[in-house]
Design a protein around this nucleic acid. Structure first.
Length: 571
RNA sequence: CGGGGCGUAGCGCAGCCUGGCUAGCGUACCUGCUUUGGGAGCAGGGGGUCGGAGGUUCGAAUCCUCUCGCCCCGACCA
């Protein structure tokens, strides 16, 4: 391809509204343009990158037996009402009506559509398992899209769905998918981790995320510095520290009311009573479909609402509004405590191991000391309820400690169980003629997000550094002066020969001066630059420059054609 | 949804507070000449209903009201 024939509108300056590197650079490199909040046009160079990601995904999906389909992006409300998600999905689901006043939505995901297909056309255990996938535009009306195509409202996604007769077969496909995902992200040149995750509104029992490590990531990833345990911080399991010193009061500690005027926060109470924070227990109030609930964690810990929601087994769980608390309990925030508190109480496991502790007394300006779990509290359920902290002990090995880093979720795999197949009656007959719901798995990759994540991990002050497998072109030929006939002919001949060798090459045929062309090449991030100038050419040589290292060296000219494939191998 | 910020040429910005010449600068773009190995120089040129509507005024990019859009922080979502 000739550079001048492609629409590659590079910019010298970053757009004012871009925050993160991938957003700035993809706009500057002429790959994407914004149309509306969270909605982007993909320009020729950007599309070449996305197509590279897609091609890798297709190969890996086909490898594990996936069959590609293409489902409608517009979906009728009836399907979503059947799965109950019409009500539960919320405002993120973009809904609208057609001219006949029928309700539709723009698909944010395709479990309903795929389940509808399978239930109609798959009836026998002989037809299972089936794995279908598609690469297609999704729309999720996010409250706050940001970071370019990293988190758009409209975005390209690969979604795959599998249907099985039994749990073991589902697990097998799940494991193969996990491997396929690892292959995809490895081939995309990404440093990533497979982490344990919550399944959110998709539902289901079991799930992992693939997180690309990057400071601009919106997720927090917790992983062991010794073994291979890794989890989204939302799900990261806590393990009580061995040999932890319990509150040193004797077991017969007395429940005492003390006056603590104006001391609301754990810090204030700890300082006032001259106690460490871990001898105070926080009572956090949240609200679910059944009303207020209380969560107890040690003063030096924070509650993890996701873990708490899973422990309770409720539909939803949100922090309670201060107004609700005051109305229902008649106690100002800061003095709430679990003693004689008449709502369901859930305690973190590390609270139940404390000998005695301090809590609010459900009375303004008052706390209890000497509170004991067994004697003073009615706890509905206790378990792991807290957010882990860096340096906490690893839950899977003895010597490891948690490290916490930021990550970008580029892929997510779930075992759905029978949530959709039961709601939508996707059943099969087994070899006894008995009807059962199919067991499902689903598997997603954000295509644009994967490309953006690659830029986050691979860029420098000059621009993008594409790994070879994602680069829009592998090689750019840059003539120092394209008006010079010798150079022009050499470049064109080199271009033709490389193309014949199967190298993806672009020739910068623009009349611009050298500087501008080199800046653009670095900005866009072609892995290899071949610079053809008159002086070197007289000596039968051309300059080759590696984008990543900025190292350049002279190479004999006709010979270079044969050497390029080898040089590219290492990029 | 709560808080904050910004809308002036493709992109980046000044001008607004304190209303007043033909709305400016950089860059990009077009023409010509020169230049040509790391974002050239000179000369000439095109491109704006100053986000929109209404109001105040002799006069509005500038003041007032409403409205739309975009961005950031948080909450939310995955």
């Amino acid at each position: 391809m000739y550079f001048s024939k492609l629409l590659i509108p590079t910019l010298k300056e970053s757009p004012a509204d871009a925050e993160v590197a991938s957003h700035k650079l993809m706009v500057r490199a002429g790959m994407i343009r914004q149309l509306a909040a969270g909605i982007y046009s993909i320009l020729p160079l950007g599309l070449r990158v996305l197509k590279k990601v897609e091609a890798i995904i297709r190969e890996e999906m086909n490898q594990v037996g996936g069959q590609e389909v293409f489902l409608p992006s517009i979906q009728p409300a009836e399907l979503w009402q059947e799965s109950k998600r019409w009500d539960f999905y919320g405002k993120e689901l973009l809904r609208f009506k057609d001219r006949h006043n029928r309700e539709f939505c723009y698909g944010p995901t395709h479990e309903e559509v795929i389940t509808d297909i399978i239930r109609k056309d798959v009836k026998s255990y002989r037809q299972l398992p089936v794995i279908l996938y598609q690469i297609q535009t999704k729309f999720r009306d996010e409250v706050r899209p940001r970071f370019g195509i990293m988190r758009g409202r409209e975005f390209m996604m690969k979604d795959a769905y599998s249907f099985h007769t039994d749990e073991a077969d589902t697990q097998k496909t799940y494991a193969e998918m996990a491997q396929a995902y690892a292959n995809v992200f490895t081939r995309c040149g990404l440093e990533f981790k497979q982490v344990q995750a919550d399944s959110g509104t998709i539902g289901g029992s079991f799930s992992h995320e693939f997180a690309v490590l990057a400071d601009s990531g919106e997720d927090e990833i917790a992983f062991c510095n010794s073994c291979n345990y890794a989890s989204n911080i939302e799900m990261a399991e806590s393990k009580p520290k061995a040999g932890y010193e319990r509150f040193p009061d004797p077991p017969q500690a007395e429940l005492k009311e003390i006056h603590t005027p104006g001391k609301k926060s754990v810090e204030e109470v700890a300082e006032f009573l001259k106690l460490p924070r871990d001898q105070i227990v926080k009572t956090i109030l949240l609200e679910n479909e059944n009303g207020l609930v209380a969560g107890l964690v040690r003063g030096d810990h924070e509650i993890n609402p996701i873990k708490m929601k899973n422990l309770i087994g409720c539909e939803w769980l949100l922090p309670a509004a201060e107004k609700t608390i005051n109305e229902k309990l008649g106690v100002p925030c800061g003095y709430i405590g679990p003693v004689n508190l008449d709502i369901p109480i859930y305690a973190d496991q590390e609270v139940t191991t404390l000998g005695s502790f301090v809590t609010g007394a459900n009375k303004a300006d008052t706390h209890f000391t000497g509170v004991q779990v067994e004697r003073d509290l009615k706890i509905n359920k206790s378990g792991d309820l807290r957010l882990i902290l860096a340096d906490d002990p690893c839950p899977r090995c003895d010597e490891g400690k948690y490290q916490v880093k930021r990550g970008i979720e580029v892929g997510h795999i779930f075992i759905l169980g029978t949530k959709y197949s039961e709601a939508m009656k996707a059943v099969y007959l087994d070899n006894n003629g008995k009807e059962s719901p199919m067991i499902m798995g689903c598997y997603g990759i954000g295509v644009g997000r994967t490309a953006a994540a690659s830029v986050e991990q691979n860029h420098d002050e000059k621009g993008i550094v594409w790994p070879r497998n994602l680069a829009p072109f592998e090689v750019i030929i840059i003539p120092v002066n394209f008006k010079n006939d010798d150079l022009k002919n050499t470049c064109e001949s080199l271009y033709t020969q490389l193309k014949k060798e199967g190298v993806e090459v672009i020739l910068d045929d623009r009349q611009d001066r050298l500087g501008g062309k080199l800046k653009d090449a670095d900005l866009i991030g072609f892995p290899l630059q071949i610079i053809v100038g008159p002086k070197n050419l007289e000596e039968g040589k051309v300059e080759i420059k590696i984008r990543k290292t900025q190292e350049s060296q002279l190479h004999p000219y006709p010979q270079i054609v044969n050497d390029i494939p080898n040089i590219l191998k290492d990029l």
